[in-house]
Amino acid sequence: MGRGRTFLDWPVVRQLTGADPLGRGAAVESARTRDWTARTETADRVVKSVCPYCAVGCGQNVYVKDDHVVQIEGDPDSPVSRGRLCPKGSASEQLVNADNRLKHVLYRRPGAADFERLDADTALDMIADRMVESRRRWWQDTDEDGRPLRRTMGIAALGGATLDNEENYLIKKLFTALGAIQIENQARI
């Protein structure tokens, strides 16, 4: 038998001689299985979140231990999903903890063949500078008859379905305030 096991340690023997004749519980559990603890039980805290994959907005409970996501499950308190997640939502912990996940900004200069790393502040400054310049350059205050337009044709927005209603509302307000009129969302296309 090996490793100190005896005939009586076999699951089928425990099943036939114990209180679990159907073999659906303790009779078929190994000592190793009994010692397992769920990741959700050892988490330091649970953070409420929304699944990032589609526009449905399923609620998620994100289990965190030592500032590291250890498990993501459906939130039973969510009126949208009532604790259920699709296969992609159920696997979103892998999105957070994937070894090949990019964790820094990559930028490819015009005409360059390779990407370079940038710090987030530099990247945000570059985006802001380009937004301001595009707005200034393509601003249309009035049409040819003098009627007010107050718009820019140099900025457009395409939102994603992973954003919730509040985020999309704020993005719409921001781009409208900038004068953009081409504002669309992937969920509507």
Rank of each mutant, 00 (worst) to 15 (best):
R32G: 15
R32P: 15
T33F: 13
W36Q: 13
T37D: 11
A43V: 04
R45S: 05
R45L: 11
V46K: 01
K48Q: 07
S49C: 03
S49Y: 02
C51G: 00
C51P: 02
C51T: 01
C51Y: 02
C51N: 03
P52M: 04
C54M: 09
A55K: 00
C58I: 02
C58T: 01
Q60I: 08
N61S: 10
V64G: 01
V64P: 00
D66T: 06
D67Q: 04
H68Y: 04
H68Q: 08
V69T: 06
V69R: 03
V70Q: 03
V70R: 01
Q71I: 02
D75L: 00
D77N: 06
S78N: 05
P79H: 05
V80R: 03
V80I: 11
R82N: 11
G83K: 01
R84C: 10
R84N: 12
S90L: 10
S92E: 03
S92V: 05
V96F: 14
V96M: 09
A98C: 12
A98Y: 13
R101I: 00
L102G: 09
K103G: 07
K103Q: 07
H104C: 11
V105K: 00
L106T: 15
R109W: 06
P110S: 11
E116R: 14
R117W: 15
R117N: 12
R117D: 14
D121S: 07
L124R: 09
D125S: 09
D125P: 01
M126Y: 13
D129H: 12
R130S: 13
V132G: 11
V132W: 08
E133M: 14
E133W: 15
S134I: 11
R135M: 14
R136Y: 15
R137H: 12
W138G: 06
W138T: 10
W139V: 02
W139E: 08
Q140A: 10
D141Q: 15
